[in-house]
Simulated assay, not measured.
Amino acid sequence: MLVLLAFIIVFHITSAALLFIATLDNAWWVGEGFYADVWKICINSTNCTEISDAFLDYSTMQAVQATMILSTILCCIAFLIFLLQLFRLKQGERFVLTSIIQLLSCLSVVIAASIYTDRRQELHSQNQNFYALTSEGTYGYSFILAWVAFAFTFISGLMYLILRKRK
């Protein structure tokens, strides 16, 4: 049981780390000489422009930013509640509250990644003088980490739902 508990804790911490990296790092859309994320766009690592309300579809990027932050916060809250429930639940009870919060984190990250996937073309091609260089690129590792974090938080949420407190 101790090995299972250690695996669950490491798996959850890994999920949270993936969410932090995906939210904060500048590699959602990358190409030759530029990289972009949900916060800013940099060309040649020197010319960085923050995404602000000057962009036509700023509300969409705000939705991506908000849901990624929400997923990270919910994942951390789920971990803290798991630790509290670990010592407070009676034997045989399930970690339902932890599971619900972790599945909400999963839902938030899939919403953010889906919005970014759907709107990427419009988000990176509206300002012709700045985004002309960024139209040819690929999804970066932070974007991929967001999808991996989705899978991890989903699996973690299901584990908590199935898991019963045993001796």
Rank of each mutant, 00 (worst) to 15 (best):
L56G: 08
A146G: 11
N47L: 08
K90R: 09
D118W: 13
Q128F: 14
F7T: 05
A17L: 08
I69A: 15
V10M: 01
L5W: 02
L56N: 09
F154M: 08
V10I: 08
L84P: 02
F87P: 03
F95S: 00
F82C: 00
L70Q: 10
I73C: 12
L163F: 08
I81R: 07
Y116P: 05
C42K: 05
Y58A: 02
Q102D: 07
L107V: 15
I69N: 12
R94S: 14
F11P: 00
T153L: 08
I111Q: 04
L103A: 04
S114F: 09
L89T: 00
M1P: 02
S45Q: 13
R119A: 14
I111F: 12
L84T: 11
T49S: 09
M159V: 10
F79M: 06
Y58R: 01
I77K: 04
N44F: 13
E93C: 12
I100T: 13
L107M: 12
S71D: 09
T72F: 15
L19W: 03
C76P: 00
I101C: 01
R120K: 13
H124E: 12
A36W: 03
Q65K: 15
S52Q: 09
L145K: 02
I51A: 02
I21L: 14
M61Y: 07
S114T: 14
A54N: 09
E50L: 14
L104V: 06
Q121I: 13
L4I: 06
V96H: 06
I9N: 06
Q102C: 15
C106I: 10
S114N: 15
L104P: 02
N44V: 09
A151L: 10
C42E: 06
A151G: 15
L83W: 04
K165I: 03
R166Q: 08
S15F: 00
T72W: 10
L18T: 04
S108T: 06
M68S: 15
C76L: 13
I21C: 10
I69H: 12
N129V: 12
A54P: 02
S99I: 01
Q65V: 09
I41W: 03
Y160K: 03
A149S: 13
A66F: 08
W147Y: 10
Y160W: 10
T117C: 15
L103W: 03
F152N: 00
Q121E: 13
F11T: 00
A151T: 07
R88H: 04
R120Q: 10
A132L: 14
L97Q: 01
D37L: 02
F11H: 04
S45G: 07
D37R: 01
L5N: 05
A54G: 14
I69C: 12
T134Y: 05
E32M: 11
Q85G: 02
I69V: 14
V96P: 05
L104Y: 05
Y131M: 13
T23L: 13
F82D: 00
V148L: 12
Y116Q: 10
G157K: 00
D118H: 14
E136Y: 15
I155H: 01
C48V: 07
I21D: 09
R166E: 15
H12T: 03
T23R: 07
F55C: 02
T134I: 15
F152V: 05
I100S: 07
A16V: 12
L2K: 07
G157Q: 01
G92R: 07
L97C: 04
L84H: 08
T138R: 11
A27Q: 13
R119K: 14
L5E: 04
A149Y: 05
I81G: 03
E50H: 13
V38P: 01
L24V: 14
